[in-house]
Amino acid sequence: MKTWALARFTVKEAVRGKAMIAGLVISLLYLALVPAFSSPSGGNAIVGDEQMRIAASREFLNFALGGLNFIGMFLAIFTTLGTIYSEIERGTIVTLVTKPISRVQLIAGKWLGHVMLMAAYVIIMGLALWLSVALGSGMLVWRFFPALMLVCLNVITMVSLTLAFSTVLPVVANAVFVFLMMVITSNLRIVHAIGETSQNAVIMVAANLFRMVLPVGEVNDLAGRIMLGQTQASNLMGVSPSAFTPRAWSFLYELVYLSALLMIAVLLFQKKDLS
């Protein structure tokens, strides 16, 4: 009950925040403009025979999901940034930690609040995209939903990462650190391609290993594969360092990864002096 009270409070607080309001404006603009930027329909109604319409719908949803993944992670960072550190700086944390709740419950409540908010955001945005395609083309792209769940997982991971570092880093330092990690690990494909072009195995192996530092880029690639139906087991085992296909187990790794982040957050906060 106490964890739930903290979660509800966190949701209310985040919803009132400037980051969320700005995020909602950006999201509405995105929903309005994404058809214009996607290929191949370019904003026009998806027409043609059924096969063409299915392919075009999948491609559009894949493109739109990539954008949602980025906006969702961005929003997750900016709504979670000051979760713990700002409360310490403002002194408001004192009235919370002196109540009959453990510090583990405090972290869990804050985390749960942000996760509920961001998961609701991703699901609502995803449903809006899916419905727009279903109504526009008459195509029901069911494989969109497992891919959407992976995007949801990515957003929850970013919440967990930002929350863990908000126990020790001030808002600006946390923003720079987490954002850089997100950008770098989301663009390792480029690093790998450089390795491939220059036939440098070290760069390719490094790019592959670095995907483990923050698995959101790889899981986003996996979501794309699911959308496009490229999910053959042989492609997804990732046994060859020269291949840069997303590994099927990467989402399981991400689950373990975010659990570890929560444990780190608790360890960092458990014995921290808050004054």
Binding site: M1, K2, A5, L6, K99, P100, I101
Partner: peptide
């Protein structure tokens, strides 16, 4: 109310 909830 929030603090009452935290007291259970």
């Amino acid at each position: 109310d929030f603090h009452g909830r935290l007291y259970g």
